[in-house]
């Protein structure tokens, strides 16, 4: 399905947030996911189903002051 992830629109063979995490090899990493402006808790990644055209943000901690 078509998803916009971190601002880039792309076609991915995925069904859930967990699939997206696996696709990018981010399992076990301190990642936070926002789907259409709503935070998806880590415990729900496996069951959180995606819809065509959704906007995902995958964020983490980086250096900053």
């Amino acid at each position: 399905m078509e998803l916009t992830i971190n601002g880039i629109t792309q076609q991915l063979e995925v069904r859930t947030v967990g699939d997206v995490i696996a696709h990018f090899g981010l399992e076990g990493k301190p990642v936070v996911v926002e789907a259409d402006g709503e935070i998806v808790d880590r415990e729900r990644w496996g069951e959180a189903e995606l819809r065509q055209g959704m906007k995902l943000e995958l964020v983490h901690f980086v250096g900053g002051g």
């Binding site: 990018f24 943000e57 995958l58 964020v59 983490h60 901690f61 900053g64």
Partner: peptide, 19 residues
């Protein structure tokens, strides 16, 4: 320690994980 919150670089997710 302070940090910023930023998008993961999906091209190279390993690169900038400071933790």
């Amino acid at each position: 320690l302070t940090f910023a919150i930023r998008r993961i670089n999906l091209e190279a997710p390993e690169d900038d994980s400071i933790l």
